[in-house]
Simulated scan of single mutants.
Amino acid sequence: MSQTCGFVAIVGRPNVGKSTLMNRILGQKISITSRRPQTTRHQVMGIKTEGEAQFIYVDTPGIHIMAKDRNKAINRFMNQAATQALRDVDCVVFIIDRTRWSDEDQVVLQRLEHVQAPVILAVNKVDRLEDKSTLLPWLGEVGARRDFAAIIPISAKHGTNVPELEAEVAKHLSEGVHHFPEDQVTNKSQRFLAAELVREKIMRQLGDELPYQVTVEIEEFRDEGRVVHISALILVERSGQKKILIGENGERIKSIGREARLDMERALDAKVMLNLWVKVKRGWSDDERALKSLGYNLD
């Protein structure tokens, strides 16, 4: 039996469950998640090899409308990263949220107009539908918007119909050798994953209090075998944001560090010594040079 391999872009507007779906498919956390839109900022590859088939999923930032208050360099970068992921893929999984169709879903659909690869529509979070009888008519309605290769209702969180989605994706892989070793699960480094885990905890704990002008830079990553020493710098844009992040008597930053360290230890299978610092770097989110220096580069 010949080998098959393919790139699969996972796209959709912010906060529809793209990262949750990829983590579910891989059976481990590769992309960070939170209830806040635009948690994912980079293209993140998740690689799954099953026998002769290798799936290379590309999790993408949510494609969003560039309103005046969101027309910053980092927003432009995220939209470019998501759009770039659509090039030269074998298949696209377009995720929407239940029976809702927003202006941003329409923007994503328009971005897919010139994509030659088959597009599978995944209708996510169906487990949260109060009236299940609304689903079937909705699938017919949304199916008229494009000639989709398949329309599959799923729950990325609980795994409902995810194997059926994977089986549909498998039909569109190309014959060819595998691009990655069978035990590799992502193209991202451990340093990158460590920074993302810190940012995830910030988003989860302070999502309602802090705007999106927060990023994390790993200044030290020293692996001594059974112990990994990590020093992370958290950048914000204003001194008031720094005060919120540190919290009263440093309690908030301690809590963020504690949760991030536990996830790092699970991911690295080693004891982690984690140090966090907070620094004000004004205007970094709207400065293209600063973004590049912080690792915001299109792959």
Score class of each variant (00 low, 15 high):
19 S>N: 03
59 D>V: 02
54 Q>P: 12
46 G>H: 07
106 Q>I: 04
58 V>S: 11
40 T>Q: 15
9 A>C: 04
55 F>H: 15
95 I>D: 05
17 G>W: 01
14 P>V: 03
64 H>S: 13
95 I>M: 14
38 Q>N: 15
28 Q>R: 13
36 R>K: 15
60 T>Q: 14
50 E>P: 00
83 T>Q: 10
44 V>L: 11
22 M>F: 07
14 P>Y: 00
103 D>Y: 03
53 A>E: 15
71 N>T: 00
33 T>Q: 11
75 N>P: 00
85 A>P: 13
30 I>M: 11
13 R>M: 09
102 S>D: 14
72 K>T: 15
59 D>Q: 11
52 E>C: 05
98 R>H: 05
45 M>Y: 01
108 V>M: 06
11 V>S: 10
94 F>C: 02
25 I>S: 12
91 C>M: 03
16 V>W: 04
96 I>C: 11
108 V>I: 12
100 R>V: 08
82 A>M: 02
14 P>A: 04
21 L>S: 03
21 L>Y: 05
105 D>F: 06
109 L>Q: 13
68 K>C: 09
26 L>A: 11
106 Q>M: 10
25 I>C: 13
87 R>A: 14
30 I>F: 08
48 K>T: 05
42 H>F: 12
9 A>E: 06
52 E>G: 05
98 R>V: 07
69 D>P: 00
42 H>G: 09
96 I>Y: 06
107 V>K: 15
21 L>K: 06
52 E>Q: 14
27 G>H: 12
24 R>G: 07
13 R>P: 10
67 A>V: 03
22 M>W: 10
105 D>W: 07
50 E>Q: 12
44 V>P: 02
28 Q>S: 12
110 Q>S: 11
52 E>M: 03
25 I>P: 11
64 H>T: 15
65 I>Y: 01
108 V>E: 08
74 I>R: 07
102 S>K: 12
76 R>C: 10
74 I>E: 08
81 A>P: 02
77 F>V: 00
77 F>M: 01
41 R>Y: 04
82 A>V: 03
33 T>W: 02
31 S>K: 09
61 P>V: 06
9 A>F: 10
25 I>G: 13
33 T>D: 07
38 Q>A: 12
78 M>W: 01
46 G>W: 01
83 T>H: 01
37 P>F: 07
48 K>L: 14
84 Q>K: 13
88 D>I: 00
87 R>Q: 14
88 D>G: 12
62 G>Y: 06
90 D>P: 00
55 F>T: 10
109 L>S: 05
105 D>E: 13
92 V>F: 05
82 A>K: 01
81 A>H: 04
65 I>Q: 09
